[in-house]
Design a protein around this nucleic acid. Structure first.
Lengths: 182, 182
DNA sequence: GTCTATATTCTGATAGAC
DNA sequence: GTCTATCAGAATATAGAC
């Protein structure tokens, strides 16, 4: 995964992968029928991890609390697996149509978790979101973007960053109170 | 650019590129010294276009109006050049260190445009943004994310989409008025 | 389950005719 | 400025010994 992330699927040879894990190239074919399947297996395992980890979060009932849990979870999970996130987004085009459908389906299932939270919040009058699907995409894109700049040991800790992003997400989806006239 | 976006820089051969433009592979070397330089030139031209186009927008003085202009511009410009945006983000690792610095510098110059708007808004009390640099990254990631799902001819027009995203951006950066006490 | 050796194809780049 | 031909090396994948 690290090699694919840093050099790209097409640019990494089976010899490089073999060298990284300490065998000769031929031995890899005891573990994967071909390079494409190896890529798919890595991506599938990542998406399975993501969904399993979110289920384990046991999000609160209350949509506002659930949304905060989701935002913090997403940032934390994705920054811990930057290589896998990058590969799973960028190498989609190297999957066969059938494998692509599998990964896309898992990604959509994950997005549905957030969309569901937003829709419940709208139903309860807690959120002001006209297009839940679009807001879902917007929030996920924003949160995933942390990966492009966050590095451990910087000025802000990861919990600090989570709080900053959660604040933006909350304000973007909650109703604007009327201006105080008093 | 289209080939690089769809198959990845490493996966595209000079013969493919030649075929696409209707010459033989050898003829390409009359236009570029090598494949790497071709990638760099495409990315550089894209970043130059981006900065030139934003300058041409002549953003309003008022930070709130400038921010709206930026949000709509960014969505419009990037959806019109999805291939270039994808390549310019994803193939950074295939640039030599020197070329990487050039592209990174241009990207930072573009981000500075947004950061400057945010800081002016904060100074005037129009925005509530504790970390302008982080908010810059968050807003750009969110807006660029439109590329992953927007397709012409769908239910929503591009101006519709711009308005939805601008609304989220505005709420994320403007102060929350105190709740109306009646 | 790993090794060495290899078949086959493709790669970026160059040389030189026209 | 484009072509054909080619160099030298690297690619995925397989075969068969151990």
């Amino acid at each position: 995964m690290r090699l694919f992330a840093r050099e790209g699927y097409a640019a990494v040879s089976m010899r490089q992968i073999a060298g990284e894990v300490g065998v000769q190239a031929g031995a890899l074919y005891n573990y994967t029928p071909d390079k494409q399947t190896l890529l798919f297996d890595l991506m599938k395992a990542h998406m399975d991890d993501l969904l399993t980890a979110w289920e384990a979060e046991a999000a609160p009932e209350h949509p506002l609390e659930a949304l905060e849990r989701f935002a913090r979870f997403h940032i934390r999970f994705n920054t811990e697996r930057a290589d896998a996130v990058f590969v799973s987004y960028m190498e989609l085009r190297n999957l066969s149509p059938k494998n692509f459908e599998v990964i896309e389906g898992l990604r959509r299932r994950y997005e549905d978790q957030l969309e569901h939270i937003l829709r419940r919040g709208v139903a309860l009058g807690l959120f002001d979101v006209a297009e839940p699907k679009i807001t879902t995409m917007a929030v996920i894109a924003m949160l995933t973007g942390v990966n492009t700049w966050f590095r451990d040991g910087g000025r802000l800790s990861l919990p600090d960053v989570e709080t900053i992003y959660w604040d933006m997400v909350r304000r973007a989806v909650t109703p604007e109170p009327a201006a105080n006239r008093g």
